[in-house]
Design a protein around this nucleic acid. Structure first.
Lengths: 139, 139
DNA sequence: TATTGTTATACTCTATAACTATA
DNA sequence: TATAGTTATAGAGTATAACAATA
């Protein structure tokens, strides 16, 4: 058998674990015709009614140039609506359809995360999570 | 401040941690004019001279359709060469230039992984790594 | 001047389908 | 029949540059 020179690198393991997890999540969201990024935006808006595009972008680390078409698609699908807050910003909130869809999104995410948590030995769960979070914010 | 409804989800933390790590690695590889995926292929070939494209693909989880142009670019850049092993497969090995570049790749990866390891509390390091590895292989 | 939002564009990685040639 | 490799194509996420309107 061939040698995998990468399997002991934490960075590589991180990438593969993330890719595997995201692939499973994308499969789950396919039923809702949503991509993981769109689903995450819906959840943020539900938790923060009237939040603006740029605030969401900062929170989720999505560039404003990429937020524009993403939000437009969700508005076109009648999941979101825009309300002007000042001359240049719009507050985003869920439509009735958006509220229903976001309920499904949350259930889907909950199932996904449960499955993931079940794979973490309970003794190391908290340590694992806090390490992951500490790996976000470094440049 | 706005509420981030995702920050306590392990799957989301995994994604953000991986994205942050990959962004830093890509920045490091830019000097070598290589992308992370190309660099990983070079390392696999160095560890397994004469390995075939399909074996690399299975190891790194890269579809054969995507291996083709990736390997072709590396051959064109005189980093790899192909030697026929049978009528349909080619064994891949590093050229002289490829050997030199791969030395740089390994140094770059080593720096990157050191930086990452430094962020892991040494007591939890092993547990963290084994959890990540266990998250690869599930469907 | 800085910020919000937008358009256009390109790159990286991934995914699928269809095909040739070989085992 | 199954496998190796290729081509074409599309989707998803990300990145930069340039711009208009507003604060």
């Amino acid at each position: 058998m061939a040698i995998d020179p990468l399997e002991n690198y934490p960075g590589y393991s991180l990438r593969r674990a993330s890719a595997a997890s995201m692939a499973r999540l994308a499969r789950r969201f396919a039923d809702l015709d949503l991509r993981p990024t769109e689903a995450s935006v819906l959840m943020v808006i539900e938790a923060n009614p009237n939040i603006t595009q740029s605030e969401i972008g900062r929170m989720l680390d999505i560039a404003s140039a990429n937020m524009a078409p993403l939000v437009s698609r969700l508005v076109e699908r009648d999941l979101l609506e825009r309300q002007p807050v000042d001359g240049r910003s719009h507050g985003l909130s869920l439509t009735k359809r958006g509220i229903k869809v976001t309920e499904n999104v949350k259930n889907t995410v909950a199932k996904h995360e449960e499955e993931l948590l079940a794979r973490l030995p309970s003794a190391e769960r908290e340590a694992f999570l806090s390490i992951l979070r500490s790996l976000w914010n470094e440049n």
